[in-house]
Amino acid sequence: MIRKSLFCIVFLILPFFVWADNPLRLSVVGSITAPFYTGAGFDAALDGIRETEAVDEVIPNPIIGFTLGSGLEYSFNNFFALQGEILLAGAGGGYVLVDNGVREAHLISEINLDIPLMLKLNKELEKGRSVYVMAGPQVSLLLYESEFVQDGHAYDKHKNSRDHFNPAGIGILTALGWRAPLDNVETFLELRYGREFSRSLKNSGANYQNVIGMAAGLQFRRKGEQS
């Protein structure tokens, strides 16, 4: 199934590379993100924790994550482009146990390899600047996972079994961005939102990884290319 999907993606993209005479542009991108889990299964899991731990409340608590990687943009014209990326991503989610005002945060931390492929719609502004939106599918591969549990000012690390996590996820990544030229590179700022359609945690019913992020990066121009 995965092989077929990859073949279809390559088959669909390849003609655009062959037909177009515009250059490829390489970029580096990093972001700070707020990953969190949603879904009826996750809510039910939190209710279960509240009952078993006998605490006042269990509140969802987005953790703070990151993405860091590089991208490749292929412009069909000034309006349309296709952008693929390969990103190391700190994702996951969390919750807080509240009992008599004492808070105990649980940070479920995943390190993933994210590979999004997005269609980019670009609107040019004055001074070589532009705004754009991007959206497309994303594959996430789980590399590493752990959980940090708050104990006062300290956080104890627990290594959860990989059996609790799905090793791969399929979702969508969207972005709203602004790009401005500097001397010989383009800078960009983006607001990103990603959501997985497959379940992240295996034994928690319907639960989905969500990530909101603020990204910044540099896109390198082809030699001799003007902004």
Binding site: A34, I59, N61, P62, I63, I64, F66, G90, G94, V96, R103, A105, L107, I111, F148, Q150, H153, A154, Y155, K157
Partner: peptide, 15 residues
């Protein structure tokens, strides 16, 4: 947060 895994780096919306 991710390399030394220091306690003070374990930020979240709650912190």
């Amino acid at each position: 947060r991710y390399v030394t895994q220091a306690d003070y780096g374990m930020i979240s919306f709650d912190s």
